[in-house]
Amino acid sequence: MSGPLLEVKGLKKSYGAIRAVGGVSFQVMPGEIFGVIGPNGSGKTTMFNSVLGQIEPDAGEIHLNGQNITGLSPLQLNQRGVGRTFQTLQVFGKMSVRDNLIVAAQEHRGTMWSRMFAPGDSGLGAKADELIDLFGIRHVADKPAGSLSYGQQKLVDIAMAFMSEPALVLLDEPCAGVNPSLVGGISTLLKQLNQQSGVGKRASSFVVIEHNMDFVMDLCHRIMVMVEGEVMAIGTPDEIRANKQVLAAYLGS
């Protein structure tokens, strides 16, 4: 049995007198879908941004495959196989959907110098088409991403995170603002990607922040509940559902 893919140990972050995250530890195993839930202001996003190198934690360590990645920049993290999506839409509006997908992985091919002479699609055309078909966005593949509907852009956004076959993907509210009828589809897609994607087609791991409880319970293997910057519980969906403390603090009210 191999060790955890992602390990967060004693993560702390305060803003002045306000403690956003106070000593959070958890592990994500290879191939696991790990959900993070909690009320607004519970420190989910701060935790997420610390792991992703957007902000520097006050204390604690973050390890990826046993290597310390604390304090690395988003760029360095991506180069080590960490992909992400954003809470708000973040596509390249003027590029076509297909180019959005290609640019999402091209920097993992060759060197800066060799890319100057590489073909326009960096040899990623087939991979992009594969994801375009999987996400059902073939009919808009050549349109500028900025001209699509919100739901379609969200799909493009998610697909981009998987183009470089990352070992770990952090998804920040993948269902936020999406039409409820599409939520089931996203869940199915993520399950498929969990099995198919990843380096050398090994299953990849996800960390998912989401408010939609049905979605999280259905998708995730394990769930961490955060309240006021602390971990209240970590367990399988069934364990979380049965946890009286969680029910009282979060689900119950």
């Binding site: 992703l52 920049s73 988003p74 760029l75 991506n78 180069q79 992909g83 992400r84 954003f86 973040q90 596509v91 390249f92 509006g93 003027k94 590029m95 180019d99 290609i102 640019v103 999402a104 992985a105 091209q106 920097e107 993992h108 091919r109 800066m112 890319r115 100057m116 002479f117 590489a118 073909p119 326009g120 960096s122 981009m160 183009m163 470089s164």
Partner: peptide
């Protein structure tokens, strides 16, 4: 037309997203 062109456009449209995708901003 090379990947550089796309990287430049990505930089213009959304530098933060570009960096998270491995584009050396």
């Amino acid at each position: 037309r090379s990947p550089w062109g796309k990287a430049f456009t990505a930089l213009r449209d959304n530098p933060i997203r570009a960096e998270s995708l491995g584009v050396d901003v």
